Amino acid sequence: MTRSTDVQTALNEYWTQRSVPYDEYQQRPDRKDLDLAAWKQVFADALGTAPLDVLDVGTGSGYVACTVAELGHRVTGIDLADGMLGRARRHADAMTTPPTFLRGDAVAPDFPANSFDAVVNRYVTWTLREPDTALANWLRLLRPGGTLAVVDSTWFARGLHEGASDQFKSFYDEDVRQALPLAESTTIEPFVDRIRAAGFVDVEAVALTRLHELDLEYGVAPNHEVLTQYLIRGTRP
């Protein structure tokens, strides 16, 4: 049986190696402003306008954390991939009211209970080891009435290694694949079901049609295909 530490080490190393091209792709000048406007709308709709204490788990290069901070929220972003944190801090240095970026585990964030009004992430749940543990911890971190807002899709419905790069397959090997129960979901429902099972209420998945339109018009990253992305939102009772 693969230990969770071994799995997480592989994930950390992969995303550190990918941090520069991943971040640069998100900053593509041909669609940068359109993307930012679309993502601001996604999280404005999810979180509302009143300033909140927000935790971005698995923040990566900080795209969502910075976007949410620009909406006026007080944001903390955590990640275990040091390369990604380096990119996130570069973006924060250019902001007037930046997020705080810390090294931390998305599955087990090290904060007291009831610390945040919202927990957010993007493209994280598919690659979570122990997603049920993670969701239970996110629920614990939220104040009553707090919001969970995550974005993901069925990226690997045909199999985790189908069409993948050699670099991806070397880190997301068979042991890692077996440790990621949501990675090969064929619909968004398993994500929704686990969020409900964790104790969140009023859970719904909303298709992000504007992002889909932008992907159709401008294309997507190598080894990816145009898929519908979903915002899954839930509330702590």
Rank of each mutant, 00 (worst) to 15 (best):
V150I: 13
R122I: 04
L141S: 03
P144H: 13
D152K: 08
D132G: 03
G145S: 09
Y123R: 09
L128T: 03
R129Q: 13
L128W: 06
P144V: 11
E130W: 02
Y123N: 06
V119P: 08
T147P: 08
L141N: 04
G146C: 05
N121R: 04
R140Y: 09
V119L: 12
L139T: 07
R122G: 05
L142P: 00
D132V: 00
L142W: 00
R122E: 07
V120Y: 01
L128Q: 03
P131N: 00
V124R: 06
A134L: 04
R122L: 10
T133S: 12
T147M: 13
W126M: 10
L142T: 01
N137L: 00
A136R: 09
V151W: 11
W155H: 15
L135A: 11
L139P: 12
V124I: 13
L142A: 07
D152W: 10
P144S: 15
R122Q: 14
A136Q: 11
L142Y: 04
R122Y: 10
Y123K: 06
D152A: 04
L128M: 11
L128N: 02
L135H: 06
L142D: 06
T133L: 09
P144F: 12
L148K: 02
T125H: 11
V119F: 07
L135Q: 05
N121F: 06
N137Q: 08
R129H: 15
L135Y: 10
L142R: 01
Y123E: 08
L142V: 03
T127K: 03
V120H: 03
E130D: 15
A136K: 07
A149Y: 04
R140A: 14
E130C: 02
A134M: 02
D132I: 02
A134N: 04
G146S: 09
W138R: 02
V151M: 15
A149L: 08
T147K: 10
V119M: 08
V150R: 01
N137F: 00
V120Q: 02
